[in-house]
Computed example of a mutant assay.
Amino acid sequence: MALPPWPYPLWIAHRGAGKLAPENTLAAFRLGAAHGYRMYECDAKLSADGVVFLLHDTTLERTSNGHGVAGERTWTELSRLDAGGWHSRAFAGEPPATLASVARHCQANRHWLNIEIKPTPGAELETGRVVAAEAQRLWVHQPDRLPLLTSFRPESLLGAKQAAPDLPRGLLLDTLWSGWEAQAADLQVQALICNQALWDRPLVRLARAQGWRMLAYTVNDEWAAERLIDLGLDGIITDRVDLFAPVS
């Protein structure tokens, strides 16, 4: 099967440069850019008042000085948090990032973004809809750099498909659960983003037969990267922006 056009770089900085800087902050994106990366992955969810902001966890404790469920806080409350001090003193006072602020960074540098839709439990469909609609609005003037929307949650990808059907979508897989192939086909995804250990030649053949692009997370060892490149993957998501030099 002929594959659809794929504009994205091979190397993708995980959560910005989320080990060397506080993940999902503008500081992490800037550091990824400083290491030559032209595409980043981030996690997006909704505040209580519907603002799309970046955070991986459901709760605030691990990556900020906040407490409780992030999606139950308004953006005004969230914006006052320190999202950098947990990482190191050098980043103390780094604020949380909105999707809008990250979009400005990417567009100013003509970089790409992989937005993982990371809903608060119970808000899967609505989060997918709002994140996709916001992404479509933010990138309307840069159609050659459209973000890739991904999620582990099929409901969120359904919401994204309903709100912005023209934005590319990808299904994230940590295991090959029963029915995943039919779900991916129903959602009309352009890509599979799998735990690196899942990729082997039979899965590559299946993905190619379906016309799906192939990405892997989170690849931090040279031997693993070499194996995946040999399999012909289209994208490698890594924390080690200091180890892997991205190339066109």
Rank of each mutant, 00 (worst) to 15 (best):
D57S: 08
A83M: 09
V52K: 01
E77H: 00
P121W: 03
R110P: 10
A133Q: 03
P95W: 12
G36M: 05
P95S: 03
Y37E: 11
R80T: 10
V102M: 06
H87S: 14
R38S: 09
A34I: 05
D144Q: 14
I115L: 02
E134V: 12
W112S: 12
R30Q: 13
V131E: 04
A123G: 00
V52A: 09
E124N: 15
E72W: 12
F29R: 03
A33C: 00
V130D: 00
S79D: 08
A108M: 14
R129E: 08
R30G: 02
W75L: 04
L55M: 14
L81V: 09
F29M: 01
T58W: 11
H111N: 08
Y40W: 14
T63N: 10
R145K: 13
L138D: 02
G68R: 15
D144S: 14
G93S: 00
D144M: 05
C106V: 04
A48W: 11
A90L: 08
R104I: 00
G122P: 09
H141V: 08
R104G: 02
T74I: 01
S47K: 03
G50I: 09
E41F: 11
A34Y: 12
W86Y: 13
I117L: 00
A97I: 08
E41P: 05
P147H: 08
R62N: 05
V140D: 07
T63W: 07
W86R: 10
H111E: 14
G32K: 00
A100H: 13
A92G: 01
W75S: 07
R145C: 12
T59C: 09
A135E: 11
A33I: 04
R104Y: 06
F91K: 11
A90W: 08
I115T: 08
E124M: 07
A92D: 03
T59N: 14
E41R: 05
S47P: 13
W112D: 03
N114C: 02
E116I: 02
G84W: 02
Q107R: 13
L149Y: 12
T63L: 14
V69D: 10
V51I: 08
I115Y: 01
S64R: 07
V140P: 01
L99I: 05
S47Y: 07
G128Q: 03
N109Q: 15
F53G: 06
E77C: 01
L99V: 05
L31E: 01
T98W: 03
L113F: 15
E61D: 11
T76C: 02
